[in-house]
Every structure is written in C-alpha cells, then in structure tokens.
C-alpha cells in the first residue's frame, strides 16, 4: 500500500506506531541493499537508517521539512550521505570521489543538516547503550532536575546520586569517544 507524504509526516509527528513501523519495514530493505553493496553490513544499515529517521523526525518537529519528493527518497538521500561520510572517515576508498562530490552539492539540503547534528546523534545513540539506571539519571539531570531532586525522587543519598551521575556521564563520553566522528573532533583541537 502506498502512503502519501502527509500521512507519514502526521504519523511520525504523533508517534503513530503503525505508520512508523510500516515506513520502517518498507524502506529499510532498500537502504540495506545500498549499504551492503557499499562495504557495509546489516547493523550499519539499521544504524544509518535510524539516524536518518531521527533527522527526519527533527525536521518534522520544528516544521522545517521542505521536500518535493517522496519521504522515502528523502530518507534514502540522507542515508547515502551519512554512509558515504562514514566510509570517507574510516578511509574506505571503494567509492569514487565524484560520487561524493555530487552528493555534496550545495543545493542538497540534508548535508549541512547532518553535519550539524551528527555528534548529537551519536551521543543520543550511546545513551541508549547504557543501562536503564544510567539513562534515567542522565536524562533527569540534563532535563533540568537538580542532583538533590533526583536523590529525593530515587531515594538515593546525595553523595551516591552525584557519584552515579558522574560515572554514567563518563561512560557515555567514553562510548562516544570511540566513534570516528569524535576522534576527528578531538583531532581538531
């Protein structure tokens, strides 16, 4: 069944499980095909696809999505850019630079967008790799709760809460540091 752009946009905006799942099921295979063809694996495909979906979600959320193609095509474009960028970073040269240059066309909106967001995406991804306890304390802290409030709510001592937050945040940064994007970021200082 073909679903039009507006239905998908509304579905994503409202967190409609069925529509998002349908979109996921329909479009992941094509991205997978592309990534497998270009030196990647199944996990890379999922990773890249989910990143692109989050980027789409953010564009929808702040009402800045302006496209004149099917959403699937737009997501595919972002995925390709994300993947080519990753390949370039890890030094795989199987793709020639003309392809890369073409995608960097200034009229191509996703690039600038992705560039600005990729570190944020990595941190959010790393957060979900932490244990639930760590996720909760970090989200509460950065969501605006003070350590005292967290301690009270979680029935921890103040000292333990401070230490726990410190340990969790350190783990998060250690995970992010392993990503090539962060390695590059480090090298720029």
């Amino acid at each position: 069944m073909k679903v039009d752009n507006n239905t998908i946009i509304e579905g994503i905006k409202n967190g409609d499980h069925t529509i998002i799942k349908e979109f996921y099921k329909t479009h992941l295979p094509r991205i997978t095909q592309y990534i497998l063809k270009n030196s990647g694996g199944l996990d890379d495909a999922k990773d890249v696809f989910q990143d692109a979906m989050v980027i789409l979600f953010e564009k929808i959320k702040d009402n800045s999505l302006k496209i004149n193609c099917a959403i699937g095509t737009y997501v595919y474009g972002i995925c390709k850019y994300l993947w080519l960028n990753k390949l370039k970073r890890i030094g795989k040269t199987e793709l020639d630079d003309t392809d890369f240059g073409r995608i960097k066309d200034p009229t191509d909106d996703p690039i600038d967008l992705v560039y600005k967001k990729e570190k944020k995406l990595i941190i959010q991804k790393c957060l979900l790799k932490l244990g639930e306890g760590c996720q909760e304390i970090l989200l509460m802290f950065f969501g605006g709760y003070s350590l005292k409030e967290i301690a009270k709510q979680k029935k921890f001592t103040d000292g333990y809460t401070r230490k726990r937050k410190f340990v969790c945040q350190k783990k998060l940064i250690q995970l992010a540091d392993k990503d090539p994007v962060f390695k590059e970021f480090k090298a720029s200082f």
């Binding site: 998002i20 989910q50 959320k61 944020k120 991804k125 957060l127 989200l139």
Partner: peptide, 18 residues
C-alpha cells in the same frame, strides 16, 4: 554536546521507538 543532546528527549524517545 552531552548537555544539548540529552535535553532533547523527544528525539531520544523517537529513536527508542525505532
């Protein structure tokens, strides 16, 4: 970066959903 990434809980929730 951590500060700004974790403030945005709606994107994190969306990724969890995915």
């Amino acid at each position: 970066l951590v500060q700004s990434a974790l403030k945005d809980t709606s994107s994190i929730d969306f990724r969890k959903k995915l």
